[in-house]
Measured scan of single mutants.
Amino acid sequence: MDVFMKGLSKAKEGVVAAAEKTKQGVAEAAGKTKEGVLYVGSKTKEGVVHGVATVAEKTKEQVTNVGGAVVTGVTAVAQKTVEGAGSIAAATGFVKKDQLGKNEEGAPQEGILEDMPVDPDNEAYEMPSEEGYQDYEPEA
Score class of each variant (00 low, 15 high):
residue 1 M to E: 00
residue 1 M to C: 00
residue 2 D to L: 06
residue 2 D to I: 12
residue 2 D to M: 00
residue 2 D to W: 02
residue 3 V to R: 15
residue 4 F to I: 03
residue 4 F to W: 08
residue 4 F to G: 00
residue 6 K to L: 03
residue 6 K to C: 05
residue 6 K to E: 03
residue 6 K to V: 03
residue 7 G to I: 04
residue 9 S to P: 00
residue 10 K to N: 06
residue 10 K to P: 00
residue 10 K to R: 05
residue 10 K to F: 00
residue 11 A to I: 15
residue 11 A to K: 00
residue 11 A to C: 01
residue 11 A to F: 09
residue 12 K to A: 06
residue 12 K to G: 06
residue 13 E to G: 04
residue 14 G to I: 15
residue 15 V to N: 00
residue 15 V to I: 15
residue 15 V to K: 01
residue 15 V to R: 00
residue 15 V to D: 00
residue 17 A to K: 12
residue 17 A to G: 07
residue 17 A to S: 10
residue 17 A to C: 12
residue 18 A to R: 00
residue 18 A to H: 03
residue 19 A to G: 15
residue 19 A to L: 15
residue 19 A to V: 15
residue 20 E to P: 00
residue 21 K to N: 03
residue 21 K to R: 05
residue 21 K to W: 05
residue 21 K to G: 00
residue 22 T to N: 01
residue 22 T to I: 00
residue 22 T to H: 02
residue 24 Q to C: 13
residue 24 Q to A: 01
residue 25 G to M: 15
residue 25 G to D: 07
residue 25 G to I: 11
residue 26 V to N: 00
residue 28 E to I: 06
residue 29 A to C: 15
residue 30 A to K: 05
residue 30 A to S: 02
residue 30 A to M: 14
residue 31 G to M: 00
residue 31 G to S: 14
residue 31 G to Y: 08
residue 31 G to H: 14
residue 32 K to P: 01
residue 33 T to W: 15
residue 33 T to A: 06
residue 34 K to G: 03
residue 34 K to A: 07
residue 34 K to W: 02
residue 34 K to N: 03
residue 35 E to F: 13
residue 36 G to L: 02
residue 37 V to S: 01
residue 37 V to P: 01
residue 37 V to A: 12
residue 37 V to Q: 00
residue 37 V to I: 04
residue 39 Y to M: 02
residue 41 G to K: 11
residue 42 S to N: 14
residue 42 S to G: 09
residue 42 S to E: 11
residue 42 S to P: 01
residue 43 K to P: 00
residue 44 T to E: 01
residue 44 T to K: 01
residue 46 E to S: 05
residue 46 E to R: 00
residue 46 E to L: 00
residue 46 E to H: 11
residue 47 G to R: 14
residue 47 G to E: 03
residue 48 V to I: 14
residue 50 H to E: 05
residue 50 H to T: 11
residue 51 G to N: 07
residue 51 G to R: 06
residue 51 G to C: 14
residue 51 G to P: 03
residue 52 V to N: 01
residue 52 V to T: 01
residue 53 A to W: 04
residue 55 V to G: 02
residue 55 V to T: 03
residue 55 V to R: 04
residue 56 A to F: 15
residue 56 A to D: 01
residue 56 A to L: 03
residue 57 E to Y: 01
residue 58 K to R: 01
residue 58 K to L: 04
residue 58 K to W: 02
residue 58 K to A: 05
residue 58 K to G: 00
residue 59 T to I: 13
residue 60 K to V: 12
residue 60 K to L: 13
residue 63 V to F: 11
residue 64 T to Q: 03
residue 64 T to E: 02
residue 64 T to S: 06
residue 64 T to A: 08
residue 64 T to H: 04
residue 65 N to L: 10
residue 65 N to D: 04
residue 65 N to S: 01
residue 66 V to D: 02
residue 66 V to P: 02
residue 66 V to R: 01
residue 66 V to C: 07
residue 66 V to T: 05
residue 66 V to M: 14
residue 67 G to N: 01
residue 67 G to M: 01
residue 68 G to S: 09
residue 68 G to Q: 03
residue 69 A to I: 14
residue 70 V to M: 07
residue 71 V to N: 04
residue 71 V to D: 03
residue 71 V to M: 03
residue 72 T to H: 00
residue 73 G to N: 12
residue 73 G to L: 15
residue 74 V to D: 02
residue 75 T to A: 08
residue 75 T to L: 14
residue 75 T to Q: 08
residue 75 T to E: 08
residue 76 A to C: 14
residue 77 V to Y: 11
residue 77 V to D: 04
residue 77 V to P: 04
residue 77 V to L: 12
residue 78 A to V: 07
residue 78 A to Y: 13
residue 78 A to R: 08
residue 78 A to N: 05
residue 78 A to E: 03
residue 79 Q to F: 06
residue 79 Q to K: 07
residue 79 Q to M: 03
residue 80 K to C: 06
residue 80 K to I: 10
residue 80 K to V: 04
residue 80 K to S: 01
residue 80 K to N: 15
residue 81 T to C: 12
residue 81 T to I: 08
residue 82 V to T: 03
residue 82 V to F: 04
residue 82 V to A: 02
residue 83 E to C: 01
residue 83 E to K: 06
residue 83 E to I: 05
residue 84 G to N: 14
residue 84 G to I: 14
residue 84 G to Y: 06
residue 84 G to E: 08
residue 85 A to S: 05
residue 86 G to F: 15
residue 87 S to C: 05
residue 87 S to Y: 08
residue 89 A to E: 04
residue 89 A to L: 10
residue 90 A to I: 02
residue 90 A to Y: 09
residue 90 A to N: 12
residue 90 A to V: 15
residue 92 T to V: 08
residue 92 T to M: 09
residue 92 T to W: 15
residue 93 G to P: 06
residue 94 F to V: 06
residue 94 F to D: 11
residue 94 F to G: 09
residue 94 F to W: 10
residue 95 V to N: 14
residue 95 V to C: 13
residue 95 V to H: 12
residue 96 K to D: 11
residue 96 K to N: 13
residue 96 K to Y: 15
residue 96 K to E: 10
residue 97 K to C: 11
residue 97 K to G: 13
residue 97 K to R: 05
residue 98 D to I: 14
residue 98 D to W: 04
residue 98 D to K: 10
residue 98 D to M: 09
residue 99 Q to L: 02
residue 99 Q to P: 08
residue 99 Q to C: 11
residue 99 Q to T: 09
residue 100 L to R: 01
residue 101 G to K: 09
residue 101 G to T: 07
residue 102 K to F: 00
residue 103 N to A: 12
residue 104 E to M: 03
residue 105 E to Q: 14
residue 106 G to Y: 13
residue 106 G to H: 10
residue 106 G to P: 12
residue 107 A to P: 06
residue 107 A to D: 08
residue 107 A to N: 09
residue 107 A to E: 09
residue 107 A to M: 03
residue 108 P to A: 11
residue 108 P to K: 07
residue 109 Q to P: 15
residue 109 Q to Y: 15
residue 109 Q to N: 10
residue 109 Q to E: 11
residue 109 Q to D: 13
residue 110 E to Q: 10
residue 110 E to L: 01
residue 110 E to G: 03
residue 110 E to I: 06
residue 110 E to F: 08
residue 112 I to V: 05
residue 112 I to L: 10
residue 112 I to K: 10
residue 112 I to D: 05
residue 112 I to W: 10
residue 113 L to N: 04
residue 113 L to G: 10
residue 114 E to R: 11
residue 114 E to I: 14
residue 115 D to M: 09
residue 115 D to Q: 11
residue 115 D to W: 13
residue 115 D to H: 05
residue 116 M to D: 15
residue 116 M to W: 12
residue 116 M to Q: 13
residue 117 P to C: 09
residue 117 P to A: 05
residue 117 P to S: 08
residue 118 V to G: 08
residue 118 V to Y: 06
residue 119 D to Y: 14
residue 119 D to R: 14
residue 120 P to H: 04
residue 121 D to A: 06
residue 121 D to C: 08
residue 121 D to W: 03
residue 121 D to G: 09
residue 122 N to Y: 11
residue 122 N to R: 09
residue 122 N to T: 02
residue 122 N to L: 09
residue 123 E to A: 03
residue 124 A to E: 10
residue 124 A to R: 12
residue 125 Y to F: 14
residue 125 Y to M: 02
residue 125 Y to N: 11
residue 125 Y to E: 13
residue 126 E to R: 02
residue 126 E to T: 07
residue 126 E to D: 14
residue 127 M to A: 13
residue 127 M to K: 12
residue 127 M to G: 08
residue 129 S to Q: 04
residue 129 S to A: 11
residue 129 S to W: 11
residue 129 S to N: 12
residue 130 E to F: 04
residue 130 E to L: 04
residue 130 E to T: 06
residue 130 E to C: 05
residue 130 E to S: 12
residue 130 E to M: 06
residue 131 E to Y: 13
residue 132 G to F: 08
residue 132 G to T: 10
residue 132 G to A: 13
residue 133 Y to C: 14
residue 133 Y to N: 13
residue 134 Q to K: 15
residue 134 Q to F: 03
residue 134 Q to W: 10
residue 135 D to K: 15
residue 135 D to P: 11
residue 135 D to Y: 12
residue 137 E to S: 11
residue 138 P to T: 09
residue 138 P to C: 04
residue 138 P to G: 11
residue 138 P to A: 08
residue 138 P to Q: 14
residue 139 E to V: 07
residue 139 E to G: 10
residue 139 E to F: 14
residue 140 A to R: 12
